[in-house]
Design a protein around this nucleic acid. Structure first.
Ligand SMILES: [Zn+2]
Ligand SMILES: [Zn+2]
Ligand SMILES: [Zn+2]
Ligand SMILES: [Zn+2]
Lengths: 135, 135
DNA sequence: TCGCTCTTTGACATCGGTTCTCACCAGGCC
DNA sequence: GGCCTGGTGAGAACCGATGTCAAAGAGCGA
């Protein structure tokens, strides 16, 4: 996390929880998880910390279909996309080499500038598929 | 709109407002727009109508960065994506021929099933760029 | 056209995620 | 330890969206 911010045990707890998983988590999930673990942190602080981490590019954010924000600490900070399990949140980082250039050229050809793109894949991971079948 | 639903003037007004623009609009924007025009429609009805239209695949929905839902009546009902002006909402429908197969193969290679993808491009349209420069 | 029925409407309450407020707390520093 | 300043957190506020339910009206048969 950013060095010009004070390192508090709350921030360490949130950052630690993110580091410990490869799943996308909502602010409320993290809040509950920390409380259950004994590292209780105020909900507002969880939101503020996630906001700061996202602003610093240290965590990735995406939105579910119903508007909830999910956060994940990715291994790399360079631009990339995700394949996310819609059931458990597990995610893998992926590249779309051709997508990058395609996005830029399509945008420019329509007279648009400052092009950005949103590319996320959603699916059901092997584990969730297995437990759904078993149950 | 769907023929097994009763055609009311409220539904006609919402559908008409969507037909009259190529811009993505929020439920609240449409509600205000209709009120200002004299075709006042209850906010709840606007939401319900948009929901019905979206469920029937007659309008496209996407979410802004802050989670608000935007709706647009597209010319085609087949699968496609959008290039959207982040300032005014104007959008053009685009295809990503290679993206479609790429998404499916990446998903499968990671053991994920029931793959879906979100691909949207955001930019500033020529008009908004011009007025920003002029202002 | 007239009723009847059953869907739809809309003002309002409610919900869920997120942000704001502000008095109190605690890192960093001397 | 003591100061200063940024951080915390319980609760209120905010905001988009959905639920409630009595009143309104679309569709239809008489
Ligand atoms: Zn899963
Ligand atoms: Zn990309
Ligand atoms: Zn524009
Ligand atoms: Zn596609």
């Amino acid at each position: 996390m950013n060095q010009q911010l004070r390192m508090t045990k709350q921030r360490a707890a949130v950052a630690g929880a993110l580091d410990a998983t490869d799943e996308f988590r909502s602010a409320q999930q993290l809040h509950e998880q920390l409380r259950d673990r004994g590292d209780a942190v105020g909900l507002a602080t969880v939101y503020r910390t996630l906001q700061a981490l996202a602003a610093g590019g240290e965590v990735d954010v995406l939105r579910t279909d119903d508007g909830e924000a999910l956060y994940r600490r990715c291994a790399r900070t360079e631009h990339h996309h995700h394949l996310v399990c819609r059931s458990c949140g597990r995610a893998v980082e992926i590249d779309g080499p051709t997508v990058e250039s395609w996005a830029a050229s399509v945008g420019a050809s329509q007279g648009f500038t400052e092009i950005e793109h949103t590319v996320e894949l959603w699916g059901t991971c092997a584990d969730c598929r297995a437990s759904a079948t078993a149950g």
